[in-house]
């Protein structure tokens, strides 16, 4: 299935106020690859993600999902292929109950009610949230909200998952659960995050953005060993790769 390909060619984007957010970004993610997009605040991570399913259109360059170029006309197809999980679950959870929330996408896609039912229970099971089905989403804890937000995207059965800061604002346990969940997926995953340990855990590839350009693109272990690069990009070695000040082990 070539649907799982995500390709950007020379993307440029400037916000209406003139801020240049992307300045010539190119990459090609292949089937099943899990990519961590890292970089300082304002490096262009979120802007890049919003291009991957057509929420923003590039000023120059193009995005292709599989064989399809992202344009206004292909938007419905692209959005079914690319599932997007937003940073603040409150922005994403607007239906009155978790069940309706998860059913929202499939119903919009015009699926039959039984099929929708199936997908909802499957998606909730995947994120271990079946017991929340009848609760109103805004009464859930942060970790539960995150799980439901992911389920609401999984129910569309996307080939590509795009996530903005999936572990932000989570307690350590909820963070670990989210990481395990992300590891269990076989989708092509694009994850923007400041949590570099998460990148080590989940990703097979790290894309470092700096001032709207790709500063590095390679295996996380290699990229995170380059201290000069990390410093230049306002990053820091993942905690796990730093010497431990308490027990004195590490490098």
């Amino acid at each position: 299935m070539s649907h799982h390909l995500v390709e950007a060619r020379d993307l440029y984007y400037a916000y209406p106020d003139g801020t240049a957010a992307l300045r010539g970004v190119s990459f090609r993610f292949t089937h099943g690859e899990s990519v961590g997009v890292v970089g300082a605040n304002g490096a262009g991570k979120s802007t890049l993600l919003l291009h991957l399913n057509g929420c923003l259109s590039p000023g120059r360059g193009a995005v292709r999902i599989g064989d399809v170029q992202v344009t206004r006309k292909t938007l419905p197809d692209v959005r079914r292929t690319v599932g997007m999980v937003f940073q603040d679950p409150d922005d994403q959870l607007f239906m009155p109950s978790v069940r309706e929330e998860v059913a929202f996408g499939p119903l919009n896609a015009g699926l039959a009610p039984e099929e929708v039912e199936d997908r909802v229970s499957k998606a909730l099971e995947t994120v271990d949230a079946s017991h929340l089905a009848d609760r109103p989403p805004f009464r859930l804890s942060g970790g539960e909200k995150r799980a439901v937000a992911i389920a609401s995207v999984l129910s569309l059965e996307p080939d590509v998952l795009v996530m903005d800061e999936p572990t932000a604002n989570l307690d350590p346990h909820a963070r670990r659960k989210t990481i395990d969940l992300l590891r269990s997926f076989h989708h092509t995953r694009v994850i923007a995050t400041h949590d570099l340990d998460l990148v080590l855990d989940v990703c097979t590839r790290a894309l470092v953005l700096h001032h709207g350009q790709v500063a590095a693109d390679g295996s996380p272990a290699d990229v995170f060993r380059d201290e000069a690069l990390l410093a230049a990009c306002h990053l820091e070695k993942p905690l796990r790769m730093q010497a431990c000040p308490v027990c004195g082990t590490g490098d």
Binding site: D88, D91, F94, S152
Partner: peptide, 11 residues
């Protein structure tokens, strides 16, 4: 942001 999120799921 909410509208974008809705649009992403085919609203």
């Amino acid at each position: 942001r909410v509208y974008t999120a809705m649009g992403c799921r085919g609203f």
